[in-house]
Simulated scan of single mutants.
Amino acid sequence: MTTDLGTTTQRLTKHEARRRLEHERNSRLAQLRAIEESAPLADEDLQAAQTAAIRRVLDEIDAAGRRLADGSYGTCDNCQTAIPVERLEILPYVRFCVGCQQRAS
Rank of each mutant, 00 (worst) to 15 (best):
Glu89Trp: 12
Asp45Phe: 10
Arg18Asp: 14
Leu29Val: 03
Ala42Val: 01
Glu60Ser: 01
Cys100Pro: 05
Asn26Val: 10
Thr13Met: 12
His23Pro: 01
Pro40Arg: 03
Thr51Met: 04
Ala42Met: 01
Thr51Arg: 14
Tyr93Cys: 03
Leu41Gly: 00
Met1Phe: 14
Arg67Thr: 01
Ala49His: 13
Gln50Ala: 12
Arg25Tyr: 00
Ser27Pro: 00
Thr51Trp: 01
Leu29Gln: 08
Leu68Pro: 00
Ala64His: 03
Gln101Asp: 11
Leu41Phe: 07
Ala39Ser: 13
Arg55Thr: 13
Arg20His: 11
Glu60Asn: 06
Ala48Cys: 10
Gln50Val: 04
Glu86Ser: 14
Val85Lys: 06
Thr3Leu: 13
Leu41Arg: 06
Ala53Cys: 12
Arg95Thr: 11
Thr75Pro: 06
Pro40Tyr: 05
Thr75Cys: 05
Leu91Asn: 04
Ile90Ala: 15
Arg95Phe: 02
Thr2Arg: 06
Ala53Ser: 15
His23Cys: 05
Val85Gly: 02
Asp59Cys: 03
Thr8Tyr: 07
Leu12Asp: 06
Glu24Trp: 05
Glu37Val: 02
Ala48Trp: 10
Leu41Gln: 09
Arg28His: 13
Gly65Lys: 07
Arg55Asp: 11
Gly99Tyr: 09
Ala82Pro: 02
Tyr73Asn: 00
Ala42Asp: 05
Thr8Arg: 12
Pro84Phe: 05
Val94Ile: 09
Gly99His: 14
Ala64Met: 04
Ser72Asp: 02
Tyr93Ile: 02
Arg56His: 11
Ser27His: 12
Asp4Leu: 14
Ala42Trp: 00
Leu68Ala: 03
Cys97Leu: 04
Ser27Leu: 13
Arg28Lys: 15
Val57Glu: 14
Asp77Arg: 09
Pro84Leu: 06
Thr3Trp: 08
Ser38Asp: 11
Ser38Ala: 11
Thr7Glu: 13
Arg87Thr: 01
Ala52Val: 02
Arg19Ser: 14
Thr75Gly: 04
Ile90Met: 15
Pro92Lys: 06
Asp45Val: 10
Ile61Lys: 00
Arg11Pro: 02
Arg33Met: 02
Asp43Leu: 09
Leu32Ala: 12
Pro92Cys: 01
Ala42Cys: 00
Lys14Tyr: 00
Leu32Thr: 10
Ile61Gly: 01
Arg103Leu: 15
Arg87Met: 08
Asp45Thr: 07
Ala104Cys: 08
Ala39Gln: 12
Leu58Met: 13
Arg19Glu: 14
Val57Gly: 12
Glu60His: 06
Ile61Ser: 00
His15Arg: 07
Glu16Lys: 01
Ala48His: 13
Arg56Cys: 08
Val57Gln: 14
Ala17Pro: 00
Ala63Asn: 06
Glu86Gln: 14
Glu60Gly: 04
Asp45Lys: 10
Asp62Ala: 15
Gln50Trp: 03
Arg95Trp: 00
Arg20Glu: 09
Asp59Asn: 11
Ile61His: 00
Ile83Arg: 04
Phe96Trp: 13
Asp4Lys: 12
Leu12Lys: 06
Ser27Ile: 06
Ala82Met: 09
Ser72Ala: 00
Thr7Phe: 07
Ala30Phe: 08
